[in-house]
Design a binder for these strands. Sequence first.
DNA 1: CGCAGGCTGGCAAGCGGTTGCCAAATGTTG
DNA 2: CAACATTTGGCAACCGCTTGCCAGCCTGCG
Lengths: 362, 362
Amino acid sequence: MADAGAKSPTIYDVARAAGVASSTVSRAFARPGRVNAETAERIRVVAAELGYRTNPLARALPTGRTSMISLVISDVTNPFYNEIIRGAQAAATEAGYTTLLTDAQESGAKEREALERAVSLVDGIVLATSRMSDSAIRMIAKQRPVIVLNRAVADVPSVVTDNPRGMRRAVEHLGELGHERITYVAGPEASWADGTRWRALREAVHDLDLHAHRIGPYEPTVAGGAAAMADLARHPTSAVIAYNDLMAIGLIRALTAAGARVPEDVSVVGFDNIFAAELVTPALTTVAAPLHAMGQTAVRNLLALTRGARPTSHGPVSLPAQLVVRASTAHRRRNNTSPAWGTTKVSGAPARASTSTAAGSR
Amino acid sequence: MADAGAKSPTIYDVARAAGVASSTVSRAFARPGRVNAETAERIRVVAAELGYRTNPLARALPTGRTSMISLVISDVTNPFYNEIIRGAQAAATEAGYTTLLTDAQESGAKEREALERAVSLVDGIVLATSRMSDSAIRMIAKQRPVIVLNRAVADVPSVVTDNPRGMRRAVEHLGELGHERITYVAGPEASWADGTRWRALREAVHDLDLHAHRIGPYEPTVAGGAAAMADLARHPTSAVIAYNDLMAIGLIRALTAAGARVPEDVSVVGFDNIFAAELVTPALTTVAAPLHAMGQTAVRNLLALTRGARPTSHGPVSLPAQLVVRASTAHRRRNNTSPAWGTTKVSGAPARASTSTAAGSR
DNA sequence: CGCAGGCTGGCAAGCGGTTGCCAAATGTTG
DNA sequence: CAACATTTGGCAACCGCTTGCCAGCCTGCG
């Protein structure tokens, strides 16, 4: 039993107690096979008795490897990151790595600063939706292995959601429901994902002979979605795809407040499948990003890099998205081509039996 | 300009370039005043030119202080922790500390393991809703300063929500609405908060001449709340207080599915005021824990401890909770004493104008 | 029997800072 | 101007662990 009185024991204490040199103790732990099996076992026993644990800091100094990775998130309070964090943690822990979580608080400056302090502490970095410029990221990337999430930066390996395919599924879904014009409610212009999604939407509507219109940009939040309401009223459509779930939720609330019914009057599709998506009313139809898998993949690839693997030069690693159909989308009502929200008295939607989930969301 | 070619420069490089001894460089950074102002300035300039940054690892070895703290969370995906994390991060960053976020994934074993690896890396630890036993926590606490959140452990300083007062407000609110019997939907038995809340509820109903009944325990999740439905149907009441928001949301969904209307037939109050609480329909009336402040306070107190402050022996630091009144609570309908859920056809609730927030939630 | 080669374990030089102690330089005082 | 107090900067010994290099020992083989 370890008594927690004094300082924790070092390899020297173990070495003395076991009657060997400190280097042998070190090797017994760090270099299996380099030391005689019996000796190693004896050392192991003595170490256990003394309650010895190798000090990661001291180990890191000569080796230069800390077994820590940094995960930088632009905003921890955004539920979008929850599963990413968890996936990343899982992959890191599994590989014996500790995760240094940093919240950039939506500020490129804070992100830089935090990174500056962390960079010498970690073996690699995952940047989830960084707010920094491409060049700043490349700067970091030449000091330590870096993986960016949901973004493409030249010369820096990345992991992204397959937005085009996900968007395609969403458009097909709306098309099957009879919608002909789709409004895209745009997120931040600086967002790589936003550009990709809009582009994919245009291609999809073109192929399927539908029409798309874009409004925005807005903040990628509930408030931002609500703000889109005004513009939407000017270009009424029966179907909307929002940049992300938060905005979709905000928009639905605004629509409802204005007297429109979702999905009867307007179908709304979100992106990301965040936790709250299935909690809101109506439950949100959304394109589910493989959040957990993304976090996991990012970390795994990062660790591969730290072990000296060459980054794949085939562009970003793309993970499949799935459409989760819930209750915010429905058939377009033919007799209601040009919705006049708010003019008809709302009679209330009966409890929907639905919430059919087309694809498992996690 | 720092060229990112070679290894990062050390104090020796700076010392040589500035024509001083390495110790002087060290002191110029770590011991202001110990070195002549001019010399220090010159060193500073040279260091900047070389792109020198002090290596936290190397510094930690001799000093024993890493400027890192560990924040252990029982489940990062639980939105309850979002603001706590952020508050903690903010306080840590402000003090120049880096946060090591660890997700215990609801497992006491994983928590221990993670802690074991982290303990030698950090100057202090915040345990948010730990799954470990009191004695295990005390064990950790004698190796490093520890602050526990939302729990009382003898001899270990803690920060908690003022549950009794919050519960009292909730009961008063329901009482004012005419409810006479309140059902408490319990969370995990092992939860310290659960016990505190139930006790507070009993006291409050006693003082106000109301009645309380307890069902459970259930999992503190949406599914757990839904599971409570069955038991609730057996003891119908017009008012329910759930252990937390997630359960309240689950319960509301189950009630709605069963044909009961919230809040017309049943008023529901949650705890925590998580992000989704205002997004669901009806928006949830809930007791808002000062999440951000808790994270912040925990870290500040922890850092005070690492600086050698004696822990306050006055028991846990208690932070005030506030009641946020939204749309899930309403006047009890006198003619509906014994609700027969599901027998009457639901006609649908008109869009509520409400969502009145009695107290700012953040 | 002599020797090359594989195992083992020890020695000691770092890794990049910190800091107690000392001495030179400078400032103060009587 | 001598004696003494203060600054200021350098020396060198760590902090705890890793690892290149070396030597002793044991085997196996010609």
